[in-house]
């Protein structure tokens, strides 16, 4: 049984009781600046700076597509956009687990100095990745406009919804991953293998019809990563709104992940400081 004492602070950074669940909002300035610090750290001393967030997915997709054209004889124009969107979305989804695992570890200096809500740090990690996602999306939109201008249309207005849904899905995943990594130091090694496996089981680079084969279709239908990739591509590449199945599946996983992450955080919040 978990024993609980009561801590209340009536100062300007009030905390305690139910306030803890919303306390990260009081640290929004810190969150904003830490995300900025993460981005500066990532691109510091680089001549192109954050432009790499725009260029890297294009260069990766170009190289991969060139290989695919020569080996698998894929059509260039649609396949490069397919790969580009796959890479950009996967950076978020895989990153939520892989980079999310370090979210609390890198926040140790803050958490050992002051009473700061733990949730702030997974949000920081996802927010930093979301900035890259925005730049990657701009790259994907630009390449689509150049190579397949006929894909442009009102369905592109779905993009803010895609971003919101992706972030809402990734934050609890990163929170779960951060707690698991702090509690079980073997976690980070294990999760990287699981994410690599999911990478192959999700339509990130390999064409979508492969995942419709009977042997794997049941998994694809239940795979939120596959649904998020579809939700990203449908309005951008295929000129139709995301399907109800995909949105419903991701929404259901999001609700479940939030419940799991918040309950686990609540249970472990009394011990996490001792795990560093």
């Amino acid at each position: 049984m978990v024993k609980v004492g009561v801590y209340k602070n009536y100062g300007p950074t009030a905390s305690g009781g139910w306030l803890d669940a919303f306390n990260w909002l009081r640290h929004r300035h810190l969150l904003f600046h830490l995300v900025g610090a993460d981005l500066r750290a990532r691109y510091r001393r680089s001549r192109l700076g954050i432009l790499w967030a725009l260029l890297w997915p294009i260069l990766f997709a170009s190289v991969f597509t060139w290989v695919a054209i020569n080996i698998f004889h894929q059509p260039f124009t649609t396949y490069i956009v397919y790969v580009l969107t796959g890479v950009v979305m996967w950076d978020m989804l895989g990153g939520a687990f892989n980079q999310g695992a370090s979210a609390l570890v890198v926040g140790e200096g803050y958490l050992r100095q002051a009473r700061i809500p733990y949730l702030l740090f997974p949000i920081r990690t996802v927010a930093s990745m979301a900035v890259n996602f925005v730049f990657g999306s701009i790259a994907a939109l630009g390449v689509t406009l150049v190579l397949t201008p006929q894909a442009f249309g009102w369905t592109w207005l779905w993009w803010p919804f895609v971003l919101l849904l992706t972030v809402l899905f990734c934050v609890p995943c990163a929170t779960f991953s951060a707690i698991a990594n702090l509690k079980f130091r073997d976690y980070q090694h294990g999760i990287s293998i699981v994410i690599l496996m999911l990478w192959y089981l999700s339509p990130a680079l390999v064409m979508r019809d492969v995942y419709e084969r009977p042997s794997i279709k049941w998994f694809t239908d239940l795979n939120p990563f596959a649904s998020l990739l579809d939700i990203f591509r449908d309005p951008l590449m295929y000129h139709h709104a995301p399907s109800l199945h995909d949105v419903g599946l991701v929404a259901a996983y999001t609700v479940v992940m939030w419940a799991v992450a918040l309950i686990w955080l609540k249970i472990e919040s009394r011990n996490l400081i001792h795990y560093f």
Binding site: V4, G5, K8, T13, G16, E108, R112, Q113
Partner: peptide
């Protein structure tokens, strides 16, 4: 408020500043 307590209560009025580990 850094170490959660397992029993009793703590009530603070005012902004808390802790200087515990200067390099952290």
């Amino acid at each position: 408020g850094i170490y959660p307590i397992t029993g009793g209560s703590i009530e603070i009025h005012g902004r808390v500043q802790g200087i515990f580990d200067i390099g952290l």
